[in-house]
Design a binder for these strands. Structure first.
Lengths: 204, 204
DNA sequence: GTCTATAACCTGATAGAC
DNA sequence: GTCTATCAGGTTATAGAC
């Protein structure tokens, strides 16, 4: 209550640096981001970055783990819910992802591209194989379609949900859509995608 | 016939540099690639890179335009063919993309991520809006579904085709699939995807 | 905790010999 | 055309004053 006068700017120094790092790393990637940019963006001194985080790489690892959790975390609470149907899970995943990515359009390219360049280091703590393989989600899918790998199904789902955001710079940069139309389309897809996928599952 | 003794290594110096640049740029991106790495990879001297291409950026622009054409070029010959049905176009696009990306798995993330970081500079010569909007492909789609934007259709198609390659480092890095299984899946998708999409188009 | 100044290193690019 | 040597500038990280 004493020093807290500013409305939104009043974060701890450590948090201000992290906030700037989040923005710049996700926007430009690890290699293209300079520690000077982060310092400037956060309004603090360059030396403080090393004081709090020891090195650019350590700060990056922190942000990266956070962003991976953000991207993959959408799935975790949903796929093992015993009390929802496959269709309900589908709808929830689609809505949650579209909301998340509308607010963080850079997230997918950033995470996927940095993972690719990091020789698997970041994936060591991501037990995706077990998490998916033993999930209620997969079990429910196999009850409907035991003739096709659930992986195809998951890839298709994430493909139609995430890919538009990955392609968005191309779509917007070539004038195929503008920001407003793109957002409207993503809004529409919240209803369209579950309907398409449902069709895909139920088709013989 | 005189000096040409080596089997495959005998490219012009200029082409050796471009070949190394192709590999490293697509693998690590512009910012993370050092001109020294390119020189070493091509077995030539650092100074020759500047002798032939003036600067890192000019060399990059060359490779980038080449790679964009490679990625988007799959569509051009197909979408305006008057003598093929929508379904045939679909099948051709799917097969061509899966073959291209199986041979160049880094291509999509590289192109999409560099486009995002370049403030639209590379997109100036890509008249995607007209190319798609006036295409036979879109016309044929609208004959079947005038109630839904063809853009949804195209995004879905490219999503299910391209996204698996974008996600492949995650899938392989977490042990969800290995290289062999992944390739088998992509092979299967050549038949699966057209069937899914067909279903999507014909569903009321 | 925060800053200025600077060390130590790296990177793109060029000069100049062959 | 190709190489070695080197410059000029930028980048991460730290020392040391406050």
């Amino acid at each position: 209550m004493s020093k807290q006068k500013k409305i939104e700017v009043d974060l701890s120094t450590e948090e201000k640096i992290k906030e700037a790092a989040r923005k710049l790393f996700t926007q430009k990637g690890y290699a293209a981001t300079r520690t000077r940019d982060i310092a400037e963006e956060s309004g603090i001194n360059l030396a403080l970055l090393n004081y709090y985080f020891r090195s650019k790489e350590k700060l990056f690892n922190l942000i990266m783990e956070e962003k991976m959790l953000q991207l993959f975390g959408v799935l975790f609470p949903v796929i093992n819910d015993e009390n929802s149907t496959l269709q309900q899970k589908l709808e929830l995943i689609v809505v949650n992802y579209i909301d998340l990515l509308s607010a963080n359009p850079d997230l997918p390219i950033f995470v996927l591209s940095e993972i690719k360049n990091s020789e698997g280091g970041f994936l060591k703590q991501l037990p995706l194989r077990k998490m998916l393989g033993e999930s209620v989600f997969v079990k429910q899918f196999l009850e409907k379609r035991s003739d096709i790998s659930p992986l195809h199904f998951i890839i298709n789902l994430l493909g139609v949900v995430i890919f538009p955001f990955v392609a968005s710079p191309v779509l917007q940069g070539t004038g195929v859509v503008n920001d407003q139309i793109f957002n409207k389309m993503m809004e529409d897809r919240k209803k369209l995608i579950p309907a398409w996928i449902k069709q895909m599952v139920e088709t013989v």
